[in-house]
Simulated assay, not measured.
Amino acid sequence: MTTPIIQQIKQQSQPLANASMNGAIPHFWITDWLLYVIKKPSVFLMTNDDYQLTKAEYEQFNAGVTKMQKGIPLAYLTGHQEFWSLDFKVNEHTLIPRPDTEVLVEQVLNWINIQSNTEATAGQRDGANKRLLDLGTGSGCIAISLAHELSPKNNNVDKDNQTKWQVVAVDVSAEALKVARHNAVINKINNIEFIQSSWYSELSTHSEKLFDVMVSNPPYIDEADVHLQHLQAEPVSALSAPNYGLADIEHIVQHAPRYLRIDGLLAVEHGFDQGAAVRQLFLDSSFDAVQTIQDFGGNDRVTLGQIKAL
């Protein structure tokens, strides 16, 4: 059977549109999935609306639509997701990178840039190596994006300095780390060390091993959240946490002072309704200059703070 490409889109759009109204399926998934199936760029749909799907393309397209209607995300069908203009492999062992998480990357880079300028003004720039930790790296999107921006050839943050950044990325899941290592390779990043660790458990508190920056996008959804009942693909363990979603964030913040240098930065992504609670956790754990940054939708999303001298 052959079907004109535009007709095929119209045939499948209404069920997906209805699902989108319930917050399940973004409207653009069907078009992106079709482009993936026919292996064409987006402009192809504007110039070839009479294209006939082959039988194999027709069957693959319909099978994918059925999976999406059952709750399988598009990224798990294609096996890839773009984040920070880089390409990341994803599978059932990792969360799919979200655009809002780019706010975390952006804020960390902004802070590093400000610190670099402050050090330059004070005459303190000595080219010393610095260390950055990503806790619960998953697909590696945060660690790899930061390593990409901070690498000598791409360093738009610290152009005039010779600082070398060593990035450490940890995750408790060996399968997730396989994905993260693969993503580092395909994005040509070689300044990341991957460690299997339950948060800080395998990390050293020796002074030479302390970090200048720590970041994390931990599980933060309340275990009782009804939306988790409809989750079909992404690992629940990477999404939800006890204590109304705050348990892992609390662990990260409370233990961070042992692993951060004085004046070092901790930046944590969290839920839209957790800003005040997370700020209090920071303040209770010897952090200063605590602030919460909103995401692209105007919701509290990232809280940052610098460790004070104890």
Rank of each mutant, 00 (worst) to 15 (best):
I293N: 01
T3R: 03
E193M: 12
D171M: 02
F61R: 03
S237V: 13
A289N: 15
G79L: 13
L239M: 15
N191T: 15
E82Y: 06
A241T: 07
Q232G: 05
E82K: 09
H182W: 07
K39E: 14
N48T: 13
E202N: 05
N183C: 03
N22S: 13
H80I: 06
D288N: 15
F211G: 01
Y36Q: 06
F88E: 03
P4K: 06
A24M: 10
L77R: 04
I189A: 02
A309N: 13
K178W: 14
Q306D: 01
S42L: 06
V172C: 09
Q274V: 07
K188Q: 09
V90Q: 01
P26I: 12
Y220R: 14
T101V: 07
G127L: 13
Q254D: 07
H227A: 10
M1T: 00
N183L: 04
S151C: 08
M21Q: 15
H27F: 12
P41A: 04
I221S: 07
S285N: 04
L231A: 11
A267V: 02
A184M: 03
E92W: 10
E208F: 09
I114Q: 15
E119Y: 04
N191G: 03
R181P: 00
V65T: 07
G138D: 09
V215S: 02
H93T: 13
P242F: 09
N110D: 15
L146H: 08
P4A: 10
L210C: 04
I142P: 06
V278L: 01
H80T: 11
A24C: 11
I192C: 01
V226Y: 11
Q229L: 13
K70I: 02
I195G: 00
W84A: 08
V172W: 09
Q12Y: 06
E119K: 01
N62W: 05
I112H: 02
Q115C: 02
